[in-house]
Amino acid sequence: MWHLNKMIFGSFLALGTLVATSSYSWMGMWVGLEINLLSFIPLISTSKSMYPAEAALKYFIAQVLASTILLLSIVALSMKILNLIESSFQSELIFNTSLLLKMGAAPLHFWFPEVMEGLSWFNSMILLTWQKIAPMILLSYSGKTMMLLVAVIISCMFVSGVMGQNHLSLRKIMAYSSINHIGWMIAASLFFEVIWTIYFVIYTIITLNIVIMFKKLNIFFMKQLTLTMSHEPNLKMFFILNFLSLGGLPPFLGFFPKWLTIQTMINENFHFLAIVMIITTLATLYFYMRITFSTLVLSMNSILILTNPPTYKFFIMATNLVTLASLILVTLVFNLL
Rank of each mutant, 00 (worst) to 15 (best):
S124F: 01
S124G: 15
W130P: 02
V162K: 08
Q131N: 12
I153T: 11
M147R: 08
N166T: 07
K132I: 02
L128R: 00
S155W: 00
G143W: 06
T145P: 04
W130L: 14
F158C: 10
L149K: 10
Q131H: 10
P135S: 12
W130K: 05
M163N: 15
K132C: 04
M157V: 15
M146C: 10
M136N: 01
L139M: 15
L139F: 12
V150Y: 02
T129A: 06
S160Y: 00
P135W: 13
V159I: 15
P135V: 10
T129P: 00
I126N: 06
K132H: 03
S124N: 11
S169A: 08
M146H: 14
K132V: 03
W130T: 14
P135L: 12
L149P: 03
K144T: 07
S124P: 01
N123R: 12
G161Q: 01
I137F: 13
P135F: 14
V159P: 03
G164Q: 00
I153K: 06
H167D: 08
Q165K: 10
S142A: 15
I126E: 06
Q165L: 15
F158N: 05
G164V: 00
I154H: 03
N166I: 08
A151K: 00
M157Y: 06
A134M: 02
M163Y: 15
P135T: 09
S160T: 00
Y141V: 10
K132Q: 06
M163I: 12
M147S: 14
K132L: 02
N123T: 07
S142T: 09
V150W: 01
L148S: 10
H167V: 05
H167R: 12
L149Y: 06
L149N: 12
K144H: 09
I126K: 03
A151Y: 01
V152M: 05
C156H: 06
L168F: 01
K132D: 04
I153E: 05
M147I: 15
K144W: 03
F158W: 12
T129L: 09
I126R: 01
L148R: 10
V159M: 08
V162A: 11
L139T: 14
L149H: 08
A134K: 00
H167Y: 09
I154K: 03
W130M: 12
V159A: 12
V162W: 13
S142F: 04
V150R: 06
M136R: 01
M146S: 15
L139P: 11
V162S: 10
L168T: 06
L127N: 03
L149W: 13
T129I: 13
Q165S: 07
L139D: 13
M147Y: 11
M146A: 14
S160G: 00
C156W: 07
H167K: 13
L168E: 04
Q165M: 14
G143E: 13
G143Q: 11
L138G: 06
S160H: 00
I137R: 07
A151G: 07
V162C: 05
K132T: 05
G143F: 09
M163H: 15
I153M: 08
A134Q: 02
K144V: 08
T145E: 11
